[in-house]
Simulated scan of single mutants.
Amino acid sequence: MRELQLHLRSRRVPLALATVTTSIALAWALSLAFTDSATINARTASLAIMLAVVAVGTTLSGADGALDHTMAVNWPVRRVGHLLLAAATITALLSLSMITDTRYEPFALVLRNTAGLLGLTALGATVLGAALSWIAPLTWTLIAVLPMMGSSRDLRMQVAGWLVQPAGTAAATTCAAILAATGLLAYALRGCPVRPVSETAPDR
């Protein structure tokens, strides 16, 4: 238990969890206050999920990058567990809205967007590092929520705007699944790139 607590604190998980909860609650509160719909629209839900996974991205590496690659720890299993736990936490927090009059739904869309954006964040962390893992999910989400990116029968639009496509859209679901699987596999096997100590050491 002590080891788990140290692991979570070293990756700033408590702060990330607070940010995730705040982002989801704020989007819910704004929808409750300014709309009459019982369903939070896909654009608002996507923005809330994006902010949540960006917060999770900061936890994908510790202060010592070299330690995250030591052979003394089964890092692939730990990394997979970390991502799965993050996905479960975000999904659970979104699902809490089901007991209120304004909901994140349908659940299939919530699950699809969470999995896809979290996979994209993990992929960004693998390539650029945890500190820059926010670039890919933020960029794609901002493109997807543009007014012209609504429901479409065009395959290219369905892929580019997969976040706002209706639940059950095959192209959007496939895109999210590929992002989720690729990000999970890449992060599990490689983790974040090891940075020189001079880049990660705190300023004195």
Rank of each mutant, 00 (worst) to 15 (best):
L17H: 12
T35N: 06
T44Y: 10
D36H: 14
T44I: 12
S10A: 15
T58S: 14
R12G: 14
W28C: 09
T44L: 11
T44A: 13
T21K: 06
V54H: 03
S61T: 03
R11P: 10
L30Y: 08
A55N: 11
T58W: 13
D36P: 07
T19P: 03
L51G: 02
A18W: 06
N41I: 10
L26Y: 08
S23D: 00
S31Y: 08
I40T: 03
A25Q: 03
A29T: 11
T44M: 12
A16H: 06
A29C: 11
A52P: 03
R43A: 15
V53A: 07
T58R: 13
S46C: 00
S31H: 08
I49Q: 05
A29V: 11
V20D: 06
L47F: 04
L32A: 15
A25T: 04
P14G: 12
L30G: 05
A55W: 11
I40W: 04
L15N: 10
A33F: 15
P14D: 07
A52G: 07
S23H: 02
S61G: 06
T21R: 06
V20F: 13
S37I: 05
V13G: 01
V56S: 05
S37A: 10
A16W: 03
R43N: 15
L60D: 00
M50F: 09
T19C: 15
S23W: 01
M50P: 01
W28V: 07
S37F: 09
S37D: 10
D36S: 14
A29S: 13
L30T: 10
A38G: 14
T39E: 09
G57H: 03
A48G: 03
A55E: 09
L47Y: 04
A33W: 15
I40C: 05
D36N: 12
T59N: 01
T19Q: 11
R43L: 07
L47D: 00
L15W: 14
V56Y: 09
L17T: 12
T19W: 09
G57C: 04
S37T: 11
W28P: 02
V13W: 03
T22M: 13
